[in-house]
Simulated assay, not measured.
Amino acid sequence: MSWIVDKEWWSKTYTELITKTIDLNFEKDQQATDLLSTLLEGRKDSIGFEEMKNLFKEFNESIVFGCGPNLVSDLEFLRENKKLENRLLISADGATTVLINHDILPHIIVTDLDGLIADIAWASLKGSIIVIHAHGDNIDGISKFVPMFRGKVIGSTQVEPRPHVYNFGGFTDGDRSVFLSYSLGTSRVILAGFDLNGEPHSCPGKLVPFNKRIKKIKLEIAKILLKQLEEKGVKLFNVQGEPYVL
């Protein structure tokens, strides 16, 4: 079992920021984590954190793809300016559908299983590492969808880690992807398809109904967490290479 994020800091953040802002149930979060751990146990394609870190050790910069309204224009800019090369590509859940529709296969997909599973499973088969996040609202999805992935998989949680399930920090798939990038040693992160300061936007690659109020709360939490990561030395940029303004 591994805390990748600082345990004391994250436990305080979870209890004093996240659970006081949005209705979460620690016991259900832990139940989901335990289930995911059980499903990953014994799988030949389960990958450990150190193995994943070693796979991507040559990268010193990453691009994290969110599913904001600017994702397609950001993708076009990155491709035209050859910025997709030699960078670790991390897709946040529903952004995966947009990426593969533009012939981009991310190195890593971070998902809590409410994106289009067929697209994520296809990317898994083609070589993307799938970081499956467990929380109290996706217990059924964990049981149903985890067996569908045929490539390398690793688990994540926002509560106590378990075998094969790590706590990297982060709350939404987007900011969790940035936490993961930091954990892997890439503290320079380009945010593509992020619109944290605009109105909440539905993602074409999502399975679940869009709830504007809940989405807005989650984006505010994501901003706070990313600001705290910046204090730890993470440098965030937009696709033009300018500092990302949170």
Rank of each mutant, 00 (worst) to 15 (best):
121 A>S: 06
208 V>P: 00
149 F>L: 01
18 I>Y: 01
135 H>Q: 05
102 H>L: 02
87 R>L: 14
67 C>S: 06
67 C>R: 00
170 G>P: 04
159 V>R: 11
122 W>K: 14
172 T>P: 05
89 L>Q: 04
41 E>H: 14
212 K>D: 08
8 E>P: 13
215 K>R: 07
125 L>Y: 10
222 A>Y: 00
179 F>N: 14
118 A>W: 10
179 F>P: 11
110 V>T: 03
6 D>L: 11
131 V>S: 08
90 I>D: 06
195 D>H: 05
172 T>H: 01
140 D>E: 15
87 R>S: 12
29 D>G: 00
182 Y>C: 12
100 I>V: 13
241 G>S: 06
196 L>Y: 04
132 I>P: 00
228 Q>R: 13
224 I>Y: 06
174 G>I: 03
162 R>E: 03
6 D>G: 10
222 A>P: 02
154 I>H: 00
187 S>C: 07
26 F>Q: 12
232 K>P: 02
11 S>T: 15
21 T>M: 12
80 E>D: 10
11 S>K: 14
21 T>H: 03
81 N>V: 15
40 L>M: 04
19 T>D: 04
86 N>H: 15
63 I>V: 11
7 K>N: 08
38 T>H: 04
91 S>L: 09
11 S>H: 03
49 F>H: 14
189 V>F: 07
240 Q>T: 13
245 V>F: 15
50 E>H: 12
88 L>T: 08
190 I>E: 05
243 P>W: 08
229 L>Y: 09
203 C>N: 15
185 G>H: 01
209 P>T: 05
163 P>K: 03
89 L>W: 12
181 S>D: 12
97 T>N: 11
85 E>D: 13
11 S>L: 10
192 A>H: 01
206 K>M: 14
128 S>H: 08
60 N>D: 13
186 T>V: 10
63 I>Q: 01
242 E>P: 09
188 R>Q: 09
67 C>A: 15
139 I>E: 01
35 L>A: 09
136 G>N: 06
194 F>M: 06
26 F>L: 15
77 F>K: 12
154 I>R: 00
34 D>Q: 09
142 I>Q: 01
215 K>W: 11
175 D>I: 04
81 N>C: 14
171 F>V: 09
157 T>I: 05
19 T>F: 02
76 E>D: 09
